[in-house]
Design a protein around this nucleic acid. Structure first.
Lengths: 189, 189
DNA sequence: TGTTTACACTAGCGCTTGCTTGGTTATGCT
DNA sequence: AGCATAACCAAGCAAGCGCTAGTGTAAACA
């Protein structure tokens, strides 16, 4: 019931359907068909429909956290490079793991209380990482404002990209990240 | 069927329920009960459930557009004042008309094709207004970057506030707007 | 006074929903 | 060979869904 390889694959498929149709409009029968099994068999892998949603969001968030940490370890230890690495990592995970993140953003309210509490911790850890990096950039005089406020503004700007960003377009996540950081840092830098 | 005062009131109540439960989980029976009528009577005011969702979003967007235009007419004609007026108007309409806007943000995908096309025009008009104001600020050298990119980053940051902003907290929309503008303008201004 | 209009009601149709039950098949271990 | 376990299926239950049909009623208008 926990996390077999099969379950992981089913979770990926579910994420895709949840994005296309929305969680509530995605029936267990649709999920089963997409997975090539009958609807009843679904409940061998997941306790109920809620648990599928929870699994989708959990994997997306955990990936985002892991990628952000890797990006921080791989980049130069300057506040500017760290800020840029975070933004770029966020955009890239938003792209490669798009389905899971869109679900996390738009179906969060469909989680029941306990799932939400469980996932909140993960999300908080991710936001704390941002606040740390933004805080360092503030102390270095790279940007100005309130640590929490800036973090939230930046995260909002980044998450909003799922509504308009076209990966086939001319801009890479790398460029997008640079333009965002350029927007909030004085031109002298 | 068009827009009686009764219908307008029902739309407001529907917005509240859509926020609490989500569109799909809100049944016509719940809507009717909240409105103090029976479920059948609902279809005297709205052709179907979809039309209620459409009405909610339409009113919210039209209000936002109207308030933004008023704010622009009322403020000083400098690029900085206009930018600030737009941000402040956005935050205020997000607050006073919160339900409608949350629905517009999170239930957009539940609209059918024709409703979406109809509402897209309204939304585009609103975004065009932003791009105009941001464009002026760019030409004046107040901020730097790409017109469309900056508009989208800013709108993303503003819309994300519905996830964390607490109106009972210490910050007013006025202050929030100022801090956002301060973040993207060099300290010299 | 008779007719229309707006708004509400009762009753329920036809369909879909998430999930359960009880049993079958394939795989691999001892 | 005997057995355990994981993965699946067929069938269907109970509840809930959006929406319709037909009716009642009180105010507004002719």
């Amino acid at each position: 019931m926990n996390d077999s390889p099969r379950r992981r694959e089913l979770t990926r498929l579910a994420a895709q359907l949840f994005v296309q149709e929305g969680f509530d409009r995605t029936t267990v029968r649709m999920l089963a068909q997409e997975m090539g099994i009958k609807s009843g068999s679904l409940f061998h892998h997941f306790r109920d429909k809620q648990e599928i949603l929870c699994a989708v969001i959990e994997e997306g968030t955990q990936n985002a956290l892991a990628i952000a940490r890797e990006a921080l370890e791989a980049c130069a230890p300057t506040p500017e490079a760290r800020l840029h690495a975070m933004a770029r990592a966020h955009l890239e995970t938003l792209l490669t793991d798009r389905n899971a993140h869109v679900v996390a953003l738009y179906e969060w309210r469909r989680l029941d209380a306990e799932s939400r509490a469980h996932l909140s911790h993960l999300r908080d850890a991710y936001e704390a990482l941002w606040q740390e990096v933004v805080g360092d950039a503030l102390e270095a005089g790279l940007i100005h404002g309130d640590k929490f406020l800036v973090s939230r503004f930046v995260l909002g700007a980044l998450n909003w990209t799922v509504r308009w960003y076209d990966p086939e377009g001319s801009r890479t996540p790398e460029e997008l990240a640079r333009e965002l950081i350029a927007m909030i840092t004085p031109p002298s830098h």
